[in-house]
Design a protein around this nucleic acid. Structure first.
Lengths: 188, 188
DNA sequence: GTCTATATTTGGATAGAC
DNA sequence: GTCTATCCAAATATAGAC
């Protein structure tokens, strides 16, 4: 990816985050970069390509992160802690793209849509497997895996909303406190 | 509001929930109701009015619910439980409209936008006040109020995503388990 | 209350000059 | 790599007949 294309994708992420994919026009995007809309097409094939770049790159980071956690031979509890850290790390480093993934994934088309749906499904299955291991080993309370996952992912998926409003110290606080807040009630 | 107008708003809520306000056209909405787009304008002034109806009605339910909870003279813990119940109740009874509030509030214009922003700000302030009371009374651990509220609202704001996939029994489980899951780690 | 017809604007995208 | 000019499709909304 050329540096100019990266600039376009990064600028688009900011706009998509604020107003959503459908409400941002190619003219808006061009204006934000101080060029004309037609010039964008020298670097990208269209609006849809920008969405794919943004969402699939982040989705693949989640997949890679989950694979790394699974390879660990630590306890289920340690794996859960690592997944919380993974979500915070991605939210800090890719705030805008993560916002787009969370709110505009349904506007992906064709193969990109299929890839996103499959990767999300696999991620949730892997996460549930870790929770089941923790219940089987007696680390976690025997609660409904569905309900636990709902609660964990609800918070983890919202981190990107919280990050940009906060200072570096507050983000450091979150890194320290969030595992306790999310996992304490879960511990057997 | 006439019954026909209610039908339009309810149908719009379903479509807006699936694809977002900006991606749904008046033609889409008309087609979903088996009429022509022009016919919609006999009942509503435009697309924006539909969005206002949907979002402000739900926002006012949250405001009314919070006011009722504040008038109670129970413990802070009991108030927190009541707010969790309020979120579940609204999510069950207004799933689609709540989805629209959560994802498309930024497309409100003028006075409707101002009303929404003000009501959300007041709601969060009231919620924080209750958490502070609970810390002061020794009911809650002395954690950062911001972080606690982030965690609680992250989960509460996601309930609408979970509800439509679940059976009545699973929703009943959620009503029973969620206060424990969210408040156990918080208790002093 | 719904229709057809249409005005008007806007959006994604391309052609070709510089 | 960016521009001007432009095409074409789609979108909101109105007018007026039935």
């Amino acid at each position: 990816m050329t540096t100019r294309k990266k600039q376009i994708v990064r600028t688009a992420a900011q706009l998509f985050k604020q107003r959503g994919y459908s409400a941002v026009t190619m003219r808006d995007l061009a204006a934000a970069m101080d060029i004309k809309a037609a010039s964008l097409y020298n670097h990208i094939s269209g609006k849809q390509e920008i969405l794919e770049q943004l969402i699939l790159e982040v989705a693949r980071k989640f997949t890679a992160g989950m694979d790394a956690v699974k390879k660990n031979d630590g306890t289920a509890f340690a794996k859960a802690e690592q997944l919380i850290a993974l979500h915070i790390k991605i939210a800090v480093e890719n705030t805008d793209a993560l916002a787009v993934l969370n709110t505009d994934w349904m506007h992906l088309e064709g193969a990109a849509y299929e890839e996103y749906i499959a990767s999300r499904k696999k991620y949730e299955l892997d996460f549930k497997q870790i929770l089941k291991e923790g219940i089987a080993s007696g680390e976690f309370k025997n609660l409904s895996v569905e309900t636990i996952l709902f609660n964990l992912l609800s918070t983890l998926r919202s981190i990107y909303l919280w990050i940009p409003k906060k200072s570096a110290t507050e983000v450091a606080d979150l890194k320290k406190e969030l595992p306790n807040i999310l996992l304490t009630g879960l511990r057997a």
